[in-house]
Amino acid sequence: MESASPILALEDVVKVYRLGDVEVRALRGITLSVGAGDFVAIMGASGSGKSTLMNIIGCLDRPTSGRYLLAGRDVAGLPKGRLAEVRNQTLGFVFQSFNLLPRTDALENVELPLIYAGVRARERRRRAAEALAQVGLGDRLHHRPNQLSGGQQQRVAIARALVSRPRLLLADEPTGNLDSRTSVEVMALLQALGRSGLTVLLVTHEADIARYAARVVVIRDGLVQSDERRAPEVAVPEVSA
């Protein structure tokens, strides 16, 4: 049951890398459509092509052939500078290793995308504080990454992804560096965001994590192997002492 207005639509996307004389066909014709508000997990072993797919969906890379419509706009052939603008305005990124700037407080880290969007300082600070409150860190605005736990750091990173009000949140192994209890916390947060209408695309190789998604797409050898929709498990974080 595809949504009437897909937030992203890939049509026969192929990606070929040249490593010297060898051609590596990382993606061999992916067709995928994700509706607004969906919560999709993309799974696959390493070497399956899921990272390449993620990079193309995240507008960090361009397909060799095929069409990619993001929020109704064909972005497959855009130059680097325009792709940066698309990433800034339409997408939010969450990484496995958080990628927060060191020696920089949470507020400033979250403000970063708004700087490149040209938002004025006062407005930036207001929206960054709002995003941090949304992820439950309203009382940690001036903590630096080294003063925060792993789960809190990832929540700062999620706030940074949310602050530019994206259409699509891309989470690449967001729990890869976290223990199981903190992982559940982060997944609960992503589910809550999904419920509020944000489209979430989760890349993971852990079935434990994928079960929180409403739809699981498995990639193998550069092709979609399966695409199933099911009732997601609701992440219930333990009440911390």
Binding site: L60, K80, A84, E85, N88, N99, S164
Partner: peptide, 16 residues
């Protein structure tokens, strides 16, 4: 390098 990569991912253009 990672900081630069992050800045680009969240919307810094090469000229930024």
């Amino acid at each position: 390098t990672r900081e630069i990569g992050l800045r680009m991912a969240i919307g810094a253009r090469p000229r930024d």
